[in-house]
Amino acid sequence: MDAETAATRYIGPKGLDPYMNRFFNMLPKLGISIAGSRLLAVRGRKSGEWRTTLVNVLTTDDGARYLVAPRGHTQWVRNLRVSGSGELRLGRKTEPFTATELPDAEKIPVLRAYLDRWGWEVGRFFEGVTKNATDAELADIAPGFPVFALA
């Protein structure tokens, strides 16, 4: 994948995805988390209104937390880049956070851990790259997968 393509990589919903997304986005509102999922809320970069989407929050062994965008440079990624902060919601619980986007060189262990945890769910967006990929393979795809450290 060339650098220009990676910088704009986005896999939009298709087929049944929009219907499944609506259903699964409703679960955290009801306080139901599947495999650690949360409802991400970020202010729109143009409207200033809250925008929400379902995300998987990766927590590493050392307690660091990350958001990975398996579909690429999505609207929530663009909004988070501008705002630098958001909320993770589950039921009535709201957790504010600040986010720092990782440079590509620092994404490799995070992408591997993310694929290890959620490869069964998001593997199709990684186009054949798995948790068993080499560091070089993960480095090649890193520009197309934004990653944010949460604080």
Rank of each mutant, 00 (worst) to 15 (best):
A3Y: 06
A6M: 12
R9T: 01
R9K: 12
R9I: 00
Y10R: 13
Y10M: 07
I11A: 13
G12W: 15
G12F: 09
G15Q: 10
L16T: 02
D17Y: 02
P18Q: 09
P18W: 15
Y19T: 13
N21C: 02
N21G: 01
R22G: 15
F24Q: 09
F24W: 05
F24Y: 07
M26R: 15
L27Q: 05
L30G: 00
G31T: 14
I34P: 13
L40H: 00
A41S: 14
A41R: 13
V42F: 05
V42R: 05
V42C: 07
R43G: 02
R43L: 15
R45Q: 03
R45E: 00
K46W: 04
S47K: 12
G48S: 09
G48R: 12
E49R: 06
R51H: 10
R51N: 03
T52D: 00
T52G: 06
N56A: 07
T59F: 06
T60Q: 14
T60Y: 10
T60K: 11
T60A: 14
D62T: 08
R65T: 06
R65F: 12
Y66T: 08
V68S: 13
V68C: 11
A69Y: 05
P70A: 05
G72S: 10
G72W: 01
H73Y: 12
T74A: 12
Q75H: 13
Q75V: 03
W76N: 01
W76Y: 11
W76R: 04
V77T: 10
R78W: 04
R78F: 04
R81A: 12
V82L: 04
S83E: 13
G84E: 09
L88H: 08
R89L: 13
L90I: 12
L90P: 01
G91Q: 07
R92G: 08
T94W: 11
T100E: 14
L102D: 01
P103A: 15
D104G: 06
D104L: 03
A105P: 03
P109H: 02
V110P: 03
L111Y: 10
R112Y: 11
R112L: 05
A113D: 05
A113L: 14
Y114L: 07
D116H: 06
D116R: 01
D116K: 08
R117C: 06
R117N: 04
W120H: 09
G123P: 02
R124F: 11
R124P: 01
F126G: 14
G128C: 10
V129S: 05
T130A: 06
T130I: 06
T130S: 11
N132H: 11
A133W: 00
A133T: 12
T134K: 14
A136M: 04
A136Q: 14
L138V: 04
A139I: 11
D140Y: 00
A142E: 02
P143S: 10
G144N: 08
F145Q: 13
P146S: 08
P146K: 03
P146C: 07
P146E: 09
V147N: 03
F148C: 13
L150E: 08
